[in-house]
């Protein structure tokens, strides 16, 4: 039983890149789309016509540091 106290502290095992990659790609894509809509849509570039998105997130865009207009 004494070897329990002597056992080295277990370090977490790294997650293999192969397992991580699909999550990384999917979540990065979704996150970048989300940040794009808050930060740049209907400002520098426009996917949806009009200015509603720009006007709706306007205050957040300014305060989060994105160029707004």
């Amino acid at each position: 039983m004494s070897d329990i106290a002597m056992a080295p502290e277990a370090l977490p095992q790294p997650i293999p890149l192969r397992e991580l990659l699909p999550w990384l790609l999917l979540a990065t894509l979704l996150a970048l789309i989300a940040i794009y809509f808050v930060g740049a849509e209907q400002g520098a570039t426009s996917l949806i016509s009009g200015t509603w998105v720009h006007e709706f997130v306007h205050d957040g865009r300014h305060m989060l540091g994105f160029p707004c207009h």
């Binding site: 808050v38 997130v57 989060l64």
Partner: peptide
């Protein structure tokens, strides 16, 4: 209000 809230939460 809502605009700021949604923008901040999404970000």
């Amino acid at each position: 209000s809502w605009g700021l809230f949604v923008g901040v939460m999404v970000y």
